[in-house]
Nucleic acid binder design. Sequence first.
DNA 1: AAGTTATATCGTAAAATTACGATATATGAG
DNA 2: CTCATATATCGTAATTTTACGATATAACTT
Lengths: 112, 112
Amino acid sequence: MSDITTQKNVSDRERLVKMLKALGNPVRFQIIQFLAQRQVCITNDIVRATPLAQSTVSQHLKVLREAGLIKGDIEGPATCYCLDTDGFTWLKQNFQAWVPDVQVCCPPVERH
Amino acid sequence: MSDITTQKNVSDRERLVKMLKALGNPVRFQIIQFLAQRQVCITNDIVRATPLAQSTVSQHLKVLREAGLIKGDIEGPATCYCLDTDGFTWLKQNFQAWVPDVQVCCPPVERH
DNA sequence: AAGTTATATCGTAAAATTACGATATATGAG
DNA sequence: CTCATATATCGTAATTTTACGATATAACTT
């Protein structure tokens, strides 16, 4: 309990950090934007909206899935992706809770 | 303009993604938490609150600085760090704006 | 001036991420 | 059954990130 890596709410914090990490990549961030706009689409729609190889997109989708940001339902030969409602609700709440609201910062301090 | 990597607001999006990436690392996230709690402290306070080497912490601080999340003022021989007010205000606003608010997701769709 | 403290940067090793092509699997069409 | 389509996974190369020790710099102390 002496350093900042041993605290309470570890699993919540880890979940949040995992989500932020997943979003902190330009390709994945834009896949989320694309999915938010399209609501529902299959993998191939995302691949075609991208300059990347299908396997690369599939890998990014896996990261987003494992972060709890998207859900994929198998529909016949394709996989139908959409945003994970619960995941995003949780993210928005916890982002507000964990990421500091800064009011005043860097007051002039005297250090001796 | 045909794929999702060519859109408007690129620099805002890039700035947001850069911030999310910076936060999407457990060490850096906890440095932010630590700074939010302590308001102001020098590098060595953070190093001592951490199991990591000084150079490693310094490197993480650089990432946070370059993402616009913290500011460092040189005070004598030490550097005095605090959260970047403007950066966090911008982040919170743009997170709300860019990260989708999901209401309904995955309606049952018929695919032919 | 010499020693101490605080920190950033450099060089580098190890690990993780990102991207690709190839492949395996599964579904639907003919 | 065969072919086409859709996608996940595997193997792998290139790049980036993460971490460390060593070093350079800068400011106080004595």
